[in-house]
């Protein structure tokens, strides 16, 4: 049983010296420091949050997406064909993303996450997973002024990100994770969900990617209990949100033995700390062959100190179950 985080991690903390990144960005805005100086601070904070995840007891970490402004901009902003427009709400949270607008064909021009992955691996003692937001979510949260249909748009995005996956796979991360929250059923947002298009996009995305790295798909901010075919998609592991998407427990009960599962079993959006024994009890009942345990989604919705406690809880529960089996 592997304890892991999902995607982002708080960029600043509340003690002295824990707001360096926030201060550096403010200084950059005032022209007091240059971009290179900011990048150095972002690197330092990245190393810090990697170590923090390891200290919490995780077996598999992310780079915390410290350099990301939001889950969409960092990827879409570096593909050819997008402009970045106004702020929109990220699902029903109190956080925002900048909406990409496609004004031409979407193409991949250069590696987006490779450098970040290499930096993270260099500063981690545990394996690092590379995480990127998937084409279906970017397509759903963006607008296009160029494509004939949503289908054309999403599939073109999938093709562009397929090249990113291939570039990442060259470096051989243990895991490459695709995040597709827009595929979750969430009564508050009601983004149009298109199962057929989603499946097609996932095949296009993963086509021909070097299988040295294992691929995973995480869907959070809701459930996919009405979409059991998710288990058949071309990924080694599917990660499910079991807090906001509590209906996912139905899927977990009938999970195919051949497929690994990610259990987002600890609430990443509220500060209340679950009882680790209760979490352990629930995940111990899952029969799947290979299990990753994590918070329900990225942790940037929480203050840094609570995020750390949530990861400790995940690790403690996962390792307690592991020790028993």
């Amino acid at each position: 049983m592997i304890a892991t985080s999902v995607s982002h991690y708080p960029k600043v903390g509340n003690g002295p010296g824990r707001q360096r990144l926030r201060q550096a960005i403010a200084q950059l805005d005032k022209g007091a420091i240059d971009r290179a100086a900011l990048d150095r601070v972002a690197d330092e904070v990245t190393a810090e949050v990697i170590q923090e995840q390891e200290r919490a007891g995780l077996d598999l970490v992310t780079d915390g997406q410290i350099r990301w402004q939001d889950p969409v901009t960092y990827i879409a902003g570096r593909l050819e064909g997008f402009e970045l427009h106004g702020l929109l709400r990220w699902f029903e949270t109190n956080t925002y993303y900048r909406q990409p607008v496609a004004t031409g064909p979407i193409t991949w021009k250069e590696p987006i996450l490779v450098r970040d992955f290499l930096y993270a691996r260099e500063h981690a003692s545990s394996p690092v997973k590379a995480v990127l937001t998937g084409p279906y979510t970017i397509g759903t949260l963006s607008e296009t002024r160029h494509h004939q249909s949503r289908r054309d748009f999403v599939l073109e995005l999938a093709g562009a990100l397929n090249q990113e996956l291939k570039a990442l796979a060259e470096e051989g991360p243990a895991w490459i994770q695709i995040d597709e929250p827009a595929m979750a059923r969430n009564p508050s947002v009601r983004y149009p969900r298109d199962f057929e298009l989603f499946g097609e996009a996932m095949y296009r995305l993963t086509e021909g990617v070097n299988q040295q790295s294992r691929l995973s798909l995480y869907i959070y901010h809701g459930d996919v209990a009405d979409y059991p075919q998710v288990a058949d998609l071309p990924f080694a592991l599917i990660g499910l949100d079991l807090v906001q998407g509590a209906a996912n427990w139905d899927l977990v009960g009938s999970w195919p033995d051949s497929k690994a599962i990610g259990l987002g079993a600890v609430d990443a959006r509220n500060v209340r700390l679950e009882d680790p024994d209760e979490v352990a009890r629930r995940i111990a009942a899952v029969a799947a062959r290979e299990i990753h345990v994590s918070p329900s989604c990225g942790l940037e919705f929480l203050p840094r100190e609570t995020a750390f406690q949530k990861l400790e809880l995940v690790a403690r529960a996962a390792h307690a179950v592991e020790a028993r089996t």
Partner: peptide, 9 residues
């Protein structure tokens, strides 16, 4: 609670 980010900085 402690600080939480809403957008940007």
């Amino acid at each position: 609670s402690g600080l939480v980010r809403s957008y940007g900085n």
